[in-house]
């Protein structure tokens, strides 16, 4: 091979860069799925757990628009067959009163950092 003194170091850098995730996690403990602290007094969230996992941000976004722009305040939950106040702090954080052990556990793992808390309280 010609110019091996340039090409070989280049290929070593290439291999190191593209295997970054493999060696970055070396020595770290094997990844465990997050454990969440769920509210004890209730069995269910306001919608099904699967729905909440994928759609809670959309739900909050809709609530915000409906509350702030259209002035409605109540959300009818088919699952629970009851009304909930469309409020981030007064509803979600009423049951999930431990942001660090609930919301943040998931968000930290996926580099999600909702800016909502710049304005909203974490406790009712």
């Amino acid at each position: 091979m010609y110019n091996a003194k340039y090409i070989i170091p280049g290929l070593i850098i290439f291999a190191l860069l593209f295997t970054f995730p493999f060696w970055y996690n070396l020595g770290a403990v094997t990844y465990e799925p997050v454990e969440l602290e769920l509210p004890e007094d209730f069995d269910d969230c306001i919608e099904s757990t699967e729905f909440m996992r994928t759609e809670h941000m959309k739900l909050l976004d809709e609530w915000r628009d409906i509350y702030v722009r259209d002035g409605y305040q109540l959300y009818w939950s088919e699952l629970k067959e009851q009304y909930f106040l469309m409020s981030l702090t007064k509803t979600c954080m009423d049951c999930h009163d431990n942001k660090e052990d609930f919301c943040d556990r998931c968000h930290d793992q996926t580099a999600v950092d909702p800016y909502c808390w710049d304005c909203h309280h974490t406790e009712p």
Binding site: Y31, P33, V34, R53, E55, T110
Partner: peptide, 10 residues
């Protein structure tokens, strides 16, 4: 199309 990211991370 949305998916839960926690199992993706796992």
């Amino acid at each position: 199309f949305k998916t839960d990211l926690m199992p993706v991370k796992e």
